[in-house]
Write a protein that binds this DNA or RNA. Structure first.
Lengths: 204, 204
DNA sequence: GGAAAAAATTGAACCAATTCTAAAATTGAG
DNA sequence: CTCAATTTTAGAATTGGTTCAATTTTTTCC
């Protein structure tokens, strides 16, 4: 069952993703023709559609890798948060934001976000929603941790608060990728300013 | 200059929008072929492209009408807000949300949102961003009004707070339109729960 | 080792948005 | 009323994502 066929399959997956990632970066998502990706990956167009339901799912696979890395990096912050609520939030969200343009260009993010709202039931659409939820859960976990450490009032609704913080950051990030000239430093500063209101309300 | 030609132009605009709106609702955005819209509106395909840059811009025109109506309705709340911070926010956001599915189906919203992130520099992309900003400004105005009425602490950063409230609502709304089975009542309840944290922090 | 079954690959065909072109219609100015 | 400018029109051409029937490769089983 897991012989030559499985190895070839994994290899083709890899080749397709690598070819697509290079072309998306190089020519942009729209500019990257399936035909070109196929040629670069040394498979046929039909094979690509055998591996991914549509063009968006190829991008989706790349985005998922990126976000999963970020989730791993975030675990450290949750485990050992700075001893100050504002800094703790800033550190975690900072990791998300600073990582974000590592593998993905703003244009790729725009496309990924667009596809995830356009086709919420496609494989990628569902995966993207799951990733958002995972990020929300991590922020919630951080807040719960800060509560356990006695840094956040324990009567605070950490679930609602986690959502609030994530939703705000995510929306700010969407606006950030929509403007090519927007800078990461300004994005972080704006989010810090918004979170300051919350921090004042929830810190012990 | 503004004789018959201008009237016919306005009339064609109207016919195209009406035909498109009906078809988008009926067959969905993807299902509505430009050819069919053209036939329904009694113009040619070329004429549609003379009036709108692309299919998305047609949807954009419909979305803009919807949001502009909502902005008008919101003015009343800002002028005469309920004498309670939580209720005031709930009333304003409630208007936005309750109106939202009046002319537009969830699928139309999904497409509109997708296009606005996918093509932020297209006519519709820019218009959509402007509408978001207008909604944010209205929320900010409400908060400033509540401050003036002595219901909100005056040391609160109303600009950052307005953004925070809008961003959270908008993100919740995006998730709402992504799930066909999601209900308006639940959406409002979730947003109320999140805003409760803020209200506790800012109310006098 | 070889035949039959199962799975995967291929590239040509299909579809809908968009663009383009040449002809026809409409308008406003003089 | 006539003419030049602008707009509309029909439809053909283009483009790129997606599908599909035929073929090839891999596996399974004897």
């Amino acid at each position: 069952m897991s012989g030559l066929r499985a190895r070839q399959k994994a290899d083709r997956h890899r080749r397709i993703i690598e070819a697509a990632a290079a072309l998306f970066r190089d020519a942009g998502y729209e500019g990257a023709k399936i035909e070109t990706i196929a040629a670069q990956a040394e498979v046929s167009v039909g094979t690509i559609y055998n591996y991914y339901q549509n063009k968006g799912d190829i991008l989706g696979a790349i985005v998922s890798m990126e976000v999963n890395e970020v989730l791993i990096a975030g675990q450290d912050v949750v485990a050992n948060p700075p001893a100050n609520v504002g800094d703790a939030l800033d550190t975690l969200l900072g990791i998300y934001i600073e990582h974000s343009l590592h593998y993905l260009s703003k244009e790729m993010w725009r496309q990924a976000m667009a596809i995830s709202t356009q086709l919420p039931d496609s494989p990628f659409g569902q995966a993207y929603t799951a990733l958002d939820r995972a990020l929300t859960e991590q922020i919630r976990a951080l807040i719960a941790r800060l509560q356990a450490l006695g840094l956040v009032r324990c009567d605070i609704d950490w679930q609602a608060l986690g959502e609030l913080v994530f939703n705000n950051m995510n929306m700010m990030f969407i606006e950030f990728v929509k403007r090519d000239e927007a800078r990461i430093a300004e994005l972080r500063a704006a989010i810090r300013r918004q979170n300051r209101i919350l921090v004042a309300a929830i810190a012990v």
